[in-house]
């Protein structure tokens, strides 16, 4: 047998094995969803922890819904986030970058965002018609036309210009998008304190991310802390953000207008496919 024949034979073997496994699984579980299969198979040998896999506790979903319902009631807000973001280097080592982000938001058509991480600073300002991105270090700024709402604008920025913002979920939740739509599992972890505030801690799993959220107790159920883990990456890089909210900020007309400093220079921005 030469190498090519070996390879074909081995490939066939794998296929046959896979078919056997697949047909076996089908025979025993019929049309049950995959998650239920896991639960049923592990429930016999292990007790509660494994059984929780694949279970989305109604209470955890209610907490998310209460949070997004509250977010919808605050059309203007300011939130400061301290962030830690992991990157995986070429050798599989996690490197953590610390940053700070401030969002000043006026729904549906204004934001002023500032990002700082390491020695990089950027601001994005949206006035309902266009977005300006500015780098104070170089004085370079760019402007692109934007649609009429924050959410559409963030979608465009990501799709066309590759610009994403951390926790842009905030801008979907406050528009009524269901935060629980993609959950594989969800449960209440317990009470906690974040920045001196009482909070409830929840843990969720989705297809590609594990995430946790700490939601303020009381009549303002705001997200105070969010941790997201890239679950499909073997290094499991993590992003975490602690949020400090101002739900009654004082904005002026200038908040959402970019006024170029004297040394500022406008440059183009590449768009997707360019």
């Amino acid at each position: 047998m030469n190498a090519a024949q070996w390879a074909r034979a081995a490939g066939l073997g794998v296929c046959v094995a896979a078919l056997l496994v697949a047909s076996g699984a089908l025979a025993t579980t019929a049309a049950a969803p995959a998650n239920t299969t896991v639960k049923a198979a592990t429930a016999k040998t292990t007790a509660k922890p494994a059984a929780r896999k694949g279970v989305v506790e109604p209470g955890s979903v209610q907490a998310l819904h209460a949070m997004s319902a509250y977010l919808r009631t605050i059309p203007t807000f300011s939130v400061k986030m301290d962030t830690e973001r992991d990157e995986v280097d070429d050798y599989g080592q996690l490197l953590t970058f610390t940053g700070g982000t401030t969002y000043r938001v006026k729904s549906p058509d204004g934001f002023n965002m500032e990002f700082a991480e390491g020695d990089k600073v950027r601001s994005y300002i949206y006035d309902g018609k266009s977005v300006t991105m500015f780098d104070p270090a170089t004085g370079y700024y760019t402007v692109f036309k934007a649609p009429g709402t924050i959410r559409q604008t963030l979608d465009l920025a990501a799709e066309k210009y590759g610009l994403t913002v951390p926790l842009d979920d905030l801008f979907h939740w406050d528009q009524g998008e269901d935060p629980a739509k993609a959950l594989i599992s969800g449960h209440y972890v317990g009470p906690a304190r974040v920045n001196g505030q009482d909070a409830e801690h929840y843990a969720f799993r989705q297809k590609s991310v594990d995430w946790q959220i700490w939601i303020a107790k009381g009549d303002k159920p705001l997200p105070l802390r969010v941790v997201i883990v890239g679950a499909t990456d073997p290094a499991r890089p993590q992003f975490e953000a602690n949020l400090v909210w101002d739900t009654a900020p004082q904005f002026t007309a200038e908040t959402f207008v970019f006024t170029p400093p004297a040394n500022a220079k406008m440059i183009p921005i590449r768009s997707e496919g360019q």
Partner: peptide, 25 residues
């Protein structure tokens, strides 16, 4: 790789959003 001035590519970022634009997704 392990050099701030390095070229593009290399680093894989943690996802910074849950449902949108996640780094790993």
């Amino acid at each position: 790789a392990a050099n701030r001035g390095g070229g593009g590519g290399g680093g894989r970022s943690a996802p910074t959003s849950i449902n949108h634009g996640g780094g790993s997704t």
